[in-house]
C-alpha cells in the first residue's frame, strides 16, 4: 500500500486529508510541522509528502529543502499546500523542488486528484 506523509499545523486539515486519503486506499502518517515531520521520516517507505507552507518551528519551504537532502526521501514527490495569498511562495517552492501545489481552501476530491496524478494508490 502506498504511504503518504501529511504535514500541516492545523489538526482539522490533517484529519480531513487523512480520512480522504485512507478512504482512497492510502496509508497515512501525519505531522504538525517540519521538525515533527523530519522525525517521522525515519527510514520507512514514503511514496508522497503533502506539506503546508506556513507552519511554526519549521515552515514548509525549509522542510522541503531538508527532505531534498535526505538520501532516502530526496526523490519523493511533494505537494505543497498554500493559500491564495501565499501564492508568491510557489516560485520559491518550485526552486526548492516542489512540483505540485494545491490551493486552500480545497475540497477532498481535489486533493485526491492531485495526489493521484503523482501517485496512484
Amino acid at each position: 500500500m502506498k504511504k503518504i506523509l501529511v504535514v500541516d499545523d492545523s489538526a482539522s486539515i490533517r484529519h480531513v486529508v487523512s480520512i480522504a486519503l485512507r478512504g482512497a486506499g492510502y496509508e497515512v502518517i501525519d505531522a504538525c510541522d517540519g521538525k515533527d515531520a523530519l522525525n517521522k521520516l525515519n527510514g520507512e517507505k514514503i511514496n508522497l509528502i503533502i506539506s503546508d507552507v506556513n507552519m511554526p518551528n519549521m515552515d514548509g519551504i525549509s522542510f522541503l529543502k531538508e527532505v531534498k537532502k535526505h538520501p532516502r526521501y530526496k526523490f519523493t514527490p511533494v505537494i505543497m499546500l498554500t493559500t491564495e495569498a501565499g501564492r508568491d511562495k510557489m516560485e520559491e517552492g518550485r526552486m526548492a523542488g516542489a512540483k505540485a501545489w494545491v490551493v486552500k481552501p480545497f475540497q477532498p476530491p481535489q486533493m485526491l486528484d492531485a495526489v493521484a496524478k503523482l501517485c496512484l494508490p
Binding site: F75, P77, K117, L120
Partner: peptide, 16 residues
C-alpha cells in the same frame, strides 16, 4: 525523476 515524477503513474492515470 528527481523531482518525484514517474511516467508510469501518468500512464496509469490515463488508463483511468
Amino acid at each position: 525523476l528527481r523531482n518525484g515524477l514517474d511516467p508510469l503513474n501518468f500512464i496509469r492515470y490515463l488508463q483511468q
